[in-house]
């Protein structure tokens, strides 16, 4: 049975895929997305459970408070990405990927070990702004629409073109006057913001939150969304995120074999469709 919750997860997958796509468009392989997603969720979980003032008088959690959480989470994640991005983005290729894996691992261990963030058990009873999954479907749909629209617009603007230029040839881009460090940093911060916003909604949707979401598997799964969907335009990650999130659930009837099939898909995908499902028009 396919229910609404699967569609909610698919939209979440598409959002995370866009977060991976943004730095990748500038040629930067960052695997830090689950980390910023976890930061977003942790901010939302802490604010909504620790500050009674946000709850309001109604049974449902006010949407204005949700919006406020989102602004705080975006600010925290964006600032962190800005501070970390400066030194980390000096690294190239696989070195950057490994550094971001390390970031996610450190973040998880620290969040899971420290009592301020709910430690190993996590934070429970996160209040609900919506009465059912339909509300989350609309909220995620809205968020995805905004982010996808912004990405589509970005691709046609000088910043988006500068990003693509860095991906194709960083040295040449720098010679053409693109301030590569700045563009890469902007892409990294934008990615963190998208992931954190997705995390805020997720913390409410899942009702409880702990840092186990920030793990290496999640890093690679979200990267697989982009690689299989196509990393040239915004549509690729969206399709990849939707399809690959649905796949393990749709395969549930085959039971234990489903993760093996999922493994086969991410093993064979890059071999048979190296450019992903959605190819770009120009190249």
């Amino acid at each position: 049975m396919i229910d609404i919750s699967l569609f909610v997860l698919m939209l979440l997958g598409a959002l995370l895929a866009l977060a991976v796509y943004l730095p990748l468009r500038a040629g930067q392989l960052s695997l830090a997305t689950p980390g910023f997603y976890t930061i977003g969720g942790t901010v939302a979980a802490l604010l909504s459970t620790q500050l009674p003032g946000l709850g309001g008088s109604d049974a449902v959690y006010p949407l204005t408070s949700l919006l406020l959480e989102m602004i705080v989470a975006i600010a925290v994640a964006g600032l962190l990405a800005f501070l970390i991005g400066k030194p980390v983005l000096k690294l190239r290729g696989i070195y950057l990927a490994i550094a971001t894996i390390a970031l996610v691992e450190i973040l998880r261990v620290v969040l899971l070990s420290s009592p301020w963030f709910g430690a190993a058990v996590g934070i429970f009873a996160i209040p609900q702004p919506f009465e059912g999954p339909e509300g989350y479907l609309i909220a995620y749909g809205l968020l995805l629409a905004i982010v996808a629209w912004a990405c589509a617009r970005l691709e046609r603007q000088p910043l988006g073109m500068a990003m693509a230029a860095i991906r194709d040839d960083e040295l040449a881009a720098r010679c053409m006057g693109v301030s590569t460090d700045q563009v890469k940093l902007i892409a990294f911060v934008l990615s963190a913001i998208v992931a954190a916003a997705a995390g805020v909604l997720a913390a409410h949707y899942f009702n409880s939150w702990n840092a186990r979401q920030a793990n290496f598997d999640a890093s690679i799964t979200t990267l697989a969304f982009v690689v299989l969907g196509g990393s040239r335009t915004w549509l690729g990650p969206v399709i990849g995120g939707l399809v690959l999130t649905a796949l393990p659930e749709l395969l549930r009837p085959i039971g234990d074999l489903r993760l093996i099939v999922f493994g086969l898909v991410i093993l064979l995908g890059p071999i048979f469709i190296p450019q992903g499902l959605i190819k770009s028009k120009q190249s």
Partner: peptide, 21 residues
């Protein structure tokens, strides 16, 4: 090189889940 990362991880996922199976 990006693609090797995905394919080798896919192979790892398959091996681990075969063991589990």
């Amino acid at each position: 090189p990006l693609l090797y990362l995905i394919t080798s991880l896919g192979a790892g996922v398959i091996l681990v889940n075969l063991i589990q199976l």
